[in-house]
Design a protein around this nucleic acid. Structure first.
Lengths: 187, 187
DNA sequence: CGCGCGATTGAGTAATTTCAAATCTAGTGG
DNA sequence: CCACTAGATTTGAAATTACTCAATCGCGCG
């Protein structure tokens, strides 16, 4: 198992070698190709994922057949349809690779064992969840208070790397504007 | 100290009397009047709040002087400008009473002691944070994929009680729609 | 009674979407 | 290496949605 996950957890709570070995046994590693689905809307969600490398999109397909990008997920991020994951219900969203991607998977059972057996990890996940919540709230603020132009600038400032990695169509979907509008903003 | 908080925590992790007494000592109770501020944009955020009774709005004032409602907070909810709270920085949002409100306050120091000393409470907050994150994501989906009409219906379905308790102007701000537009939807 | 806040209505305007067509680009197989 | 194709981007014009501004209405409360 590579070192990304350990480095990532260490940023919040240092782990001993033994602890890390123990923790590792709860995860397994998987590799996916571009366009592969990790989660399909309507199916059950067995894992949450720690992303070692690559890039994914978390999308919601609305009743008009339009794809809304809820979130991009990249290196060192945790992603899943958490609602479906925690409640063992069917996914409302899909999680799909934009690039070839390597992840560590964590089943709900293992997640629960982990936080029960290692209080440190409960704190770790708590901190991650808090930042996720805060990030979602910030995104809401920009969706509510900015026009297309402003949202574009904000995204450019926050994730400049995305502009190299993904087609503009996807950025438009993330911002909640049509690709034509996005295109017209860029002069 | 009244029983709301204990009942609320018990829904997730049962507490013994001793545990609850211990925990209680970390909180203090406060009462506010309609229009009082618990948090003011630009000032430091010393507490997060458990709401015993009443109703509040968490708002962001954008650069055009418009007030965006990020969230309503009611009985049994936890609320704060969590970003400023956790990072000890200045509030980006205000938290203000819509009705007279009673809360329990929790300082950051006490929060940290609590999760360090009572692993149960780390799990409790983890679960709360997860649901907060999920709720924020659901709101994003509706902001992105629905038009004014759809957002209105959604809100009506999810929080019918709000329609009795708050002026339509505030609902409009929550939905990201002008009050005139909201008014025109209701026939 | 009259004030003030909230809700409504109308008319004109601005922003964004939709539909359609043209252009550009990167990757594939021959 | 070239031609071809699918996907991505750009552009134009019309249609739609929601916004702004302004005026009016309604109601509860002092």
């Amino acid at each position: 198992m590579n070192k990304n996950l350990r480095r990532h957890i260490n940023q919040i709570t240092p782990l001993t070698d033994e602890e890390y070995t123990f923790l590792s046994s709860y995860f397994s590693e998987e590799a996916y190709k571009k366009k592969d689905f990790l989660i399909r809307q309507g199916e059950h969600v067995n894992y949450c994922y720690f992303i070692v490398s690559g890039l994914l999109k978390l999308v919601y397909n609305d009743e008009n057949g339009k794809e809304q990008i809820i979130s991009f997920a990249m290196e060192d991020w945790w992603e899943s349809d958490f609602s479906a994951y925690f409640t063992k219900s069917k996914a409302k969203m899909s999680l799909q690779c934009i690039e070839d991607t390597r992840v560590y998977t964590l089943s709900l059972k293992n997640y629960q064992k982990l936080i029960a057996e290692m209080p440190k990890m409960a704190c770790f996940f708590l901190e991650k969840s808090n930042s996720g919540h805060i990030a979602a709230q910030n995104r809401m603020i920009s969706l509510l208070s900015l026009d297309a132009q402003g949202k574009y600038q904000e995204l450019l400032k926050q994730y400049p790397s995305l502009f190299q990695r993904v087609p503009k169509t996807l950025l438009a979907s993330y911002l909640g504007v049509s690709r034509e509008t996005l295109s017209r903003l860029q002069h």
